[in-house]
Every structure is written in C-alpha cells, then in structure tokens.
Amino acid sequence: MAPFTRKKETLFLIIFALAIILIPLFVKNKYHFMVMNIVGLNTIVVIGLNLLIGFTGQISLGHAAFYGMGAYLSAIFTATFGFPPWPTIVLAMIITGMVAYFVGYPSLKLKGHYLVMATLGFSIIVHIFMVELDRITGGPSGFPGIPHLSIGAFVFDNDFKNFYLIWTFVFFCILVSVNLVNSRVGRALKAIHGSEVAANTLGIDTDKYKTKVFVLSAVFASLAGSLYAHYITFISPRSFDFYYSIQAVTMVIVGGMGSVWGAFFGAGLLTVLSEFLHVAEKYNIIAYGAILTLVLVFLPEGIVVGFYNFYRRRKIKSMIEKRGGEFRV
C-alpha cells in the first residue's frame, strides 16, 4: 500500500505546484491575492498543528503564541537591531522551538490533557508580554516598519510577489509533512493517537515523540509568523490572541484530523469565511464556535476526511458486493 500512497501523494503535489504557478495568471485583484496569502500563512500553521492534533491526538491552544513569537522575533531583530531577515527567520524558529520544548515536555509527560492548559496559559503570558513590554514590542498599538524580504536586489514588496514567496513555503511544508506522515515517525505518531499504551509497548518512546512533534508544529507556526511580519510589515498583539488559536484549531477540525491536505482545505475555507464575516466581526466568535461544535458532533473526522471515508466505505462495499459477499459497517 505504501508505494501506492506515495504515487498518489506525488501526483497531488505536482498538481498543487502547478496550481501555485498558474493561479496568479488568472487573478488580477489585489485583495484576492491578499486573501490567498493569508490562506497560505494559515495553512502553514494549520499543517503543523494538524501533525500534533490530528495525527498524534494532543491538543494545543497556544499556537497563536508561537505564530506571534515568529512575527515579533523577526520584527524586533530585523527592524530594531538590523539583523539580516533570512537568518533571523531561522533564528526565530530555533528560539520558538526551544521555548516550545520547555512548555511541552513537562505537560506531555503527564497522562491526560495538561498540554491544552499549559499552552493556553503560555499563550496568555506571551500576549501580556507583547502588550506590556511596549518599549520593545510597541505595545498594543503595534510594531511598524518591518522590512520586506528580498533575494539580492529582488524585494518581495507587493501581494503578487509575496504570493509566490508564501506559497513556495506552503508547498515545502506540505511536502515535508507528507513525507513525515508516511514514514516510521508518522506511523508512530498515529499509533500514539490510537493507543498510547500499546504504542509504548511496541518500542515507541511516546513522551519523546509527542514533544518532538509539538516542537515541530511550533516551528511551523514561527515560520508562518515571520513570513507574516515581513509581508504585512506591521504587526500588533491583536493578531496573536486567544481567538487565533481557536481559529487554527477549528481549521484543523474542519479540514479533518489526520490529513495534511485537509489542513490546507480547512485553512482555505475558514479564512475565506472569515473575510466574508469581516463586515460583522462580532459574529466571528459565534461562527467559529458553532462550526467547531457542529462539525465535531456530527462529522468528527472533519469535512474532507469525513467525505473521503464515506466514499471509501462505498467503494469497499461495492467491491465486496461484486464478489457476492455481505457488507457490515
């Protein structure tokens, strides 16, 4: 089965790459580019988060903080201290990863869902720091004047150029995630979700794997945050509050826990929906909450995976019926 999956995933990746290259030829509206870029950034966060939630079965409500750390570290180091942007993105990823390790390791060692509260508490602390350390972060009014990214003399200074930049990163994030989930490590993560005790008795160091995938997901979020900062050139604490974490989690659930492509779909659908709701921002909280609840109650596999499983069951059913067998669910 593995080689077959591999082929199918490769095909998807090629189609996806072609779409990234071709789509800008048909889009002329600047606003549409902006929405697509935000979709891309959210996709990076959500793919990482899905590795943690969907594949490994651990909950984090703190990814807004890691997203924000990427953004603020990039902003502060480049705009305030004049560091070169590209190495700073890597530096931010390393720092965020280390911080994630210290938040994640102690809570992931424990049985039960301590991670969700530890991450939530952590993200509130980070948010308070963003607001209160105003001499460094600009406080509640935000941090302006972050430089655009550039390669040589080529500056990524508009929505169109940033589209290619951001979606190239999305592509590579999806690529490495697909690699990961179809590997020894990916299977170990799914096994932890299936039964942590059984996974452990098969030789999987469950604490280590949970911590590592948590750190990886934080690093993804940090990367997205850095790209966001250099793209918009202005950041403020509002973009990285508790609601962003809820949004990211909802995207994971809607796309489907345990599906890399589902993450992309979830991020796309809900980002566009958010843009529609932008006119009435106060409905945003209700909308996300209601979507999250409804999908979980009625379609816990998520929309993409739910329909895919439905299709697969139908296919198996027809296969069995063709052979004259009986199908039980």
Partner: peptide
C-alpha cells in the same frame, strides 16, 4: 458521534466560543 476525549474537549471549546459570542 465520537466519544473520544479529544473530540469532547474540542466540543466544549466550540461551545465556549459560541456562548461567549
């Protein structure tokens, strides 16, 4: 439909947001 702990926790998160909104 799923009684997995992770699903139930998320349902309470969703409800919490809905009620707050």
């Amino acid at each position: 439909r799923s009684k997995a702990i992770i699903v139930l926790v998320f349902i309470t998160i969703g409800l919490s947001s809905t009620i707050r909104g």
